[in-house]
């Protein structure tokens, strides 16, 4: 068994809650790997007594799942209404500029994933972004760009 397959199996089998489902198994894989490889879809199907189609149906429905390894670092920028009102669009502009991207996605060198988030849950500190899942609020275009540059100076290991 490959190392990847081992990690998938450990993540899925290692769930401790009583209610284990296709969705909970996929979330466990995402936590472990940061994405859902083809092998995970196959394993979760066998493990849950479901078809590969069933598992894809769930995995493709929830936009948090991705199907290729994430970049080294992930930046989420909120586009929810509270953030929109206080300048979220200018934050996007500046973050995308630093990343060299037109819209959300991965940079070519796979160092950075930029994601749009519909609410990071800290609306009272808008505009809000998250750097490798750590929240930063009350940002402006300059501080947002600095945050990203500082993040890129660090080594990262995916999720």
């Amino acid at each position: 068994m490959s190392g990847l397959e081992q990690r998938i199996q450990d993540a899925v089998r290692g769930q401790t809650q009583p209610t284990v489902t296709v969705l909970s198994s996929l979330l466990a894989v995402e936590d472990e790997l940061g994405y859902i490889p083809k092998e995970a879809v196959e394993f979760v199907a066998g493990f849950s007594n479901a078809t590969i189609n069933d598992v894809w149906a769930v995995a493709s429905f929830y936009p948090n799942f991705r199907f290729e390894p994430p970049a080294e670092h992930t930046v989420d920028v909120c586009w929810g209404a509270s953030c929109h009102l206080v300048g979220a669009m200018s934050i996007f502009k500046s973050v995308l500029e630093v990343a060299g991207l037109d819209s959300e996605g991965d940079t070519l060198d796979k160092r950075l994933t930029v994601k749009f988030n519909s609410c990071l849950g800290a609306c009272s500190q808008a505009p809000v972004m998250a750097l490798d899942h750590h929240l930063a609020g009350r940002v402006n275009p300059e501080s947002a760009a600095e945050n990203v540059s500082r993040l890129l100076e660090r080594d990262g290991h995916g999720p």
Binding site: Q17, F61, P63
Partner: peptide, 10 residues
């Protein structure tokens, strides 16, 4: 009581 988690979906 059990905690159940969901993916991103309003």
């Amino acid at each position: 009581i059990e905690i159940a988690l969901t993916g991103d979906s309003y």
